[in-house]
Design a protein around this nucleic acid. Sequence first.
DNA 1: TCGCACACGTTATAGCATAACGCAATTGAT
DNA 2: ATCAATTGCGTTATGCTATAACGTGTGCGA
Lengths: 132, 132
Amino acid sequence: MSAPALTKNQALVFDVLEKADGPLSAYTILDKLRDHGFRAPLQVYRALEKLLEYGVVHRLESINSFVACAHPGENCHSHGIVAFAICESCSQVMEFHDHEVDHRLMDWTRGKKFKAEKTTIEIRGLCEACAA
Amino acid sequence: MSAPALTKNQALVFDVLEKADGPLSAYTILDKLRDHGFRAPLQVYRALEKLLEYGVVHRLESINSFVACAHPGENCHSHGIVAFAICESCSQVMEFHDHEVDHRLMDWTRGKKFKAEKTTIEIRGLCEACAA
DNA sequence: TCGCACACGTTATAGCATAACGCAATTGAT
DNA sequence: ATCAATTGCGTTATGCTATAACGTGTGCGA
Ligand SMILES: [Zn+2]
Ligand SMILES: [Zn+2]
Ligand SMILES: [Zn+2]
Ligand SMILES: [Zn+2]
């Protein structure tokens, strides 16, 4: 799923996420875009839905928030499962891929004949700076 | 964290989860316990908080739901990270542990000096029966 | 007996997400 | 060109998930 030209709302939402230094909730995005005419949650959620589909934004399930993909240009899908480390103090997010983890999980799903559609890996804790 | 004797509310909530054939949301649990005197979400959430602490219940972040631990007796903590495969059709949940995955993720966190507190691994898709 | 910790009940509120309606712009046959 | 289908958009209303804040009662050790 590669990204076509973004619509106005999609571009606004993506821009907010890209400039943010951490994950944002949909309602936080909404607040940041009120000056640009956003009035309702659906304007944000509809844009996010497309951005997720295009793979340029990721959803962090464990904190109900969204981040711009840390690997612009590449297609995150092609790297297999995406994993995140989320600092609960400064909310910094590190995105990474690990093929060995992918393979282990794929081995498991193959063994169970489970058809995986979407896999979430999220590590919450403290980043190096915050743990000190 | 091993489980002391459960209080009345904790036992009721745990019982509902154990008898369920899939994950339940807090509000679904609430509805199932109205006949037992439950009237407010907090009664459920407070019980869940303890059950999660004791490790006898797991929270599925990606679907805002809760399941009884599939490995009663053992302490899930001692097996490292717990992973779940969730069927989006029949909502069956399979819980498993994979030490190799644990090690890979621990290697990554060690390398980044990230102090992991809680790791979520959830695979959503279709179980063998539903994929057929 | 006093103080504390803990479970509990209740009301209110905050935070996250989608349903349903209608309109406008775009596209792509016919 | 025209019509139909698709897509994006705006708005209102609603539903689902989770916690804050306050008060009560009970058990237990100092
Ligand atoms: Zn990415
Ligand atoms: Zn940090
Ligand atoms: Zn378990
Ligand atoms: Zn199934």
